[in-house]
Design a protein around this nucleic acid. Structure first.
Lengths: 190, 190
DNA sequence: TAAATGACCAATTTATTATTATGGTCAAAA
DNA sequence: TTTTGACCATAATAATAAATTGGTCATTTA
């Protein structure tokens, strides 16, 4: 193969999804951007949705890597969970494609995009679930259902980072860490 | 005044909002249902939105009463918070007007309805905030920001009652109470 | 001759116009 | 003085026309 057409197509589609979103990205546009005939796209991908899913797999991998880059063996479980969750939620607001997709999901509810957002959420919960399971095995925390725990932790972070901000002034990273520790680890009981 | 026209209007509007939602309820319809000329409505209410707000105040009062009906002096704080939150979230899924409004908010995003839903949420948080403040004064729980605590508790309940159900099988009232106690009061720390 | 292409098509989306319905007013009636 | 419903400007909806788009496939290319 003289030129890596598949790579060109993926790069062009990523650019276009990032700039215009899923719905407003046309296959003609991707073909033009990739300097490729439209038919060529369909020799690599069954349809637009599959092309999008391929790109989403990469995005989710990047998000996982972002989490892994801040998690450290030597840290305590709660420190690592805090860092990982904060990093992944941050990723969703910093990575341009993720931002565009969340916007499109909220404003238009494009089905393929809703599914993609769901998969990102599952990736976060899945990653934290593993951390929780490991922490239980190491006897760092109480016995509990790891998936429910991970789900609650993620939702608590969204509550603290996103929902509370909507009600007034945002919480700092340190305040969030403190609240997380208070409610999930220490508890309100005296 | 021969007949209580205002009462008739409110009853007719409540029926219509419950049956058809805010958007699909017409002032002509309300007037007909109330056996009143359309102009009469505007002698009691400035416009459709104010009529709706009047009815919402009643709905929120009812929700508060539902919470108060299950809260008891002799109960512990966490028991009362559990009962109150469960009751109010239940109220939102049982009271027909509330159900209709949540549906309309989700499907159409009617601004007046979004505002109403926001007020219901504030009412719940406000009620729990008071409970938390009182519990701190009684030294039943640790010192903490009562509003953030109430907000987190409400969100945790929505997570457990609504969000987790969407991921698979629902949790029972007892499981929810246990999880609530584990995460908010006891904590995961060993 | 296998890979690449873009004109083409059915189906959907968007733009345009016509029609209806609705919130709110106010002169007349009760 | 209170109540009313015909009336109106505006907004929502329906109907129709025009443009766009995802996907195909016969033809071209290397």
């Amino acid at each position: 193969m003289a030129v890596d057409r598949k790579r060109f197509i993926i790069e062009a589609a990523t650019k276009s999804f990032t700039l215009f979103g899923y719905k407003a990205t046309t296959m003609d546009q991707v073909a033009k951007l990739a300097s490729v005939g439209k038919g060529t796209i369909y020799t690599f991908f069954k349809n637009k949705e599959e092309l999008f899913e391929d790109i989403m797999i990469t995005l989710i991998q990047e998000m996982k890597q972002a989490a892994e880059s801040v998690v450290q063996e030597t840290n305590s479980f709660q420190e690592n969970v805090h860092l990982a969750l904060f990093e992944m939620l941050q990723f969703r607001t910093k990575h341009q494609l993720a931002v565009k997709l969340f916007q499109e999901e909220k404003e238009m509810g494009t089905p393929a995009v809703s599914e993609a957002v769901r998969k990102m959420e599952n990736a976060i919960v899945g990653y934290i679930t593993n951390q929780v399971s490991a922490a239980i095995d190491r006897n760092e925390i109480k016995q509990c259902d790891p998936e429910i725990a991970a789900f609650i932790m993620m939702k608590l972070y969204v509550t603290l980072v996103v929902d509370w901000e909507r009600r007034g002034n945002a919480l700092s990273k340190e305040e969030i860490a403190q609240l997380f520790e208070l409610y999930v680890f220490e508890g309100l009981a005296i």
